[in-house]
Write a protein that binds this DNA or RNA. Structure first.
Length: 496
RNA sequence: GGUACCGUGGCCGAGUGGCUUAGGCACUGGUCUGCAAAACCAGGUACAGCGGUUCGACUCCGCUCGGUACCUCCA
């Protein structure tokens, strides 16, 4: 929409930054792989949700009408370690004596709750795989009709070698079919498949499998990748603009989706493939077996015991600290979580929010001693350069420094300049980065007046050089979490 | 072993073929203050290693070392 200053975005498919041009401006269709709802929402869920929330918000800021679809996977997940052949959700249901949909509902609610706290906007449509079995069966049927799939023992598999021959396989992940399985030892008993690269479109359910649906081929359940092809096509059309997800999904999930959609729809599906990088904790990948599998609520509460029962989190970290920390890194870089890094993020974020509050009480001058507009432009350029939120935050700190300098009398801003600072904060910090001031509350106005009263009393004591009383007020406020700061124009306060 | 990506100062984390001292946190000195805190000013530490291309590379190429994700089934 902005032709002289367009948005560039990195497309995994071409491995370069490309100008973003929607197929049908001003409309944008975006599909992002959502969570499998069989466990508590954890740190690994936060990054893709926040990254694509950033993109969603920015596209809307640019004036696009975005339909953002993010699926909920609530069927057919098998445990990859123990209990082979049993659905992840079904297993949880059996152990907890629950209906499978009850399990899915519980964890879906937990996911929503955590995402709300992180100020992640809800997508336009959030379709569930279990609600689209008919559409998935239809996709499988189409692929069979076109000759790119075969039936084996009641299951249906995609014929990868045939696809590779006709269209080329592995473009997204840079894999070559011949090399992919060249070193593979023949030790598995997957006799049903013609080629090791073939993947399931429909799986016949074993007798103990709880979640099952009838189909032309067997009572069973859809293959993992089919749901995304089915639901993206249903809600965004055969061709749409953006397909997103974590880098871990590039292969085989997205590669398989490309195969299915290409055959079923007769044309390539997504124009831009966007992948966020992964998260590590103290330099290690997050995994249940490593004992560093931290849920979001554990972060918010500040309690997580590792394998030896040692506390890993030195303190609670608020949702905005997590969000700010993630946005301080570029989405295609790995980001490493540690207490030290989170604590510095928290302090930085507090400083930013404090500056915004300071801004509200700034006294205007006759001239601007700094170029506020250039900060706005730099923020815009940073976002247009493949969503460089880290750079935007750096610019917001430049703004912070300016605001504090004005407060200290080392710089000046006009009425208009102050208004512009407020707009930049609103636009970039709140609207686009999706940050929010967590210390604001419903009773803020009452608290403000209450605090003003307390500070007035303290000022009176100070005027009388009654340090005992003035220090007592300050120290006791400190104890209940309020910091008092004396300045030239009287004292101010903030929540610690 | 294959594929993709990465290795930046005490920590986190941007960036570019020849002024970014990016930015945050921590640290040091100063201003301010009854004392503090905050804020402001000033300061230091850097581009994993080794070669090559170039007038010049942290940025391009190669190798080495180190790290992350994915890689026979399934989602």
């Amino acid at each position: 929409m902005n032709t002289e200053n367009p948005l560039f975005i990195y497309n995994t498919l071409t491995r370069r930054k490309e100008v973003f041009e929607p197929l049908h401006a001003p409309f944008v269709g975006m599909y992002v792989c959502g969570p499998t709802v069989y466990g508590e929402p954890h740190l690994g869920h936060a990054r893709p949700a926040i990254v694509f929330d950033l993109l969603f918000r920015y596209l809307k800021f640019l004036g696009y009408k975005v339909r953002y679809v993010r699926n909920i996977t609530d069927v057919g997940h098998l445990e990859h370690d123990a209990d082979e052949g049993e659905d992840k959700i079904a297993k949880k249901a059996r152990i907890e004596q629950l209906e499978p949909m009850e399990v899915a509902q519980y964890y879906m609610d937990a996911y929503h709750d955590a995402m709300d706290k992180l100020n992640v906007l809800r997508p336009s449509i959030e379709p569930r795989a279990s609600g689209h079995i008919i559409e998935q069966i239809e996709i499988v049927r189409q692929i069979l009709d076109k000759g790119y799939a075969y039936i084996s023992e009641g299951s249906v598999y995609f014929d990868v070698p045939k696809f590779d021959h006709d269209f080329g396989y592995g473009k997204l992940s840079g894999r070559v079919l011949e090399e992919l399985f060249a070193n593979t030892r023949t030790l598995d008993g997957q006799e049903e498949k013609h080629h090791p690269a073939d993947f399931a479109l429909w799986k016949k359910a074993a007798p103990e499998h709880i979640m099952r649906w009838p189909s032309p081929w067997s009572d069973g359940f859809p293959g993992w990748h089919v749901e995304c092809s089915a639901m993206s096509t249903k809600y965004l059309g055969k061709q749409f603009d953006i397909h997103g997800g974590g880098m871990d999904l590039m292969f085989p999930h997205h590669e398989s989706e490309i195969c299915q959609s290409r055959i079923a729809n007769g044309e390539p599906s997504a124009k831009y493939w966007i992948h966020n990088n992964m998260i590590t904790i103290n330099g290690q990948k997050m995994g249940k077996s490593l004992g560093n599998f931290i849920t979001l609520n554990e972060f918010f509460n500040g309690s997580h015991k590792d394998k030896e029962g040692k506390e890993m989190l030195e303190q609670p970290y608020s949702p905005m600290t997590i969000r700010f920390f993630i946005l301080q890194a570029h989405y295609r870089s790995t980001v490493d979580f540690s207490n030290e890094a989170l604590q510095s993020a928290q302090k930085g974020f507090d400083k930013l929010m404090q500056a915004y509050r300071t801004l509200q009480g700034l006294k205007p001058s006759g001239s601007d001693s700094a170029d506020v507009e250039s900060i706005y432009q730099k923020c815009l350029e940073a976002m247009n350069d493949d969503l460089n939120s880290a750079m935007v935050i750096a610019e917001l700190f430049e703004l912070t420094k300016l605001i504090n300098s004005v407060k200290d009398g080392h710089a000046t801003l006009t009425e208009a300049g102050i208004r512009r600072c407020r707009e930049i904060f609103q636009t970039f910090a709140f609207d686009i980065l999706g940050l929010k001031d967590e210390s604001a509350s419903d009773h803020q106005e009452v608290i403000n007046q209450l605090m003003q009263m307390v500070l007035n009393i303290r000022q009176k004591a100070k005027n009388e050089k009654n340090w005992a009383v003035s220090d007592q007020i300050r120290d006791q406020l400190q104890e209940i979490g309020i910091a008092v700061k004396d300045g030239k124009e009287g004292a101010t306060w903030e929540f610690k």
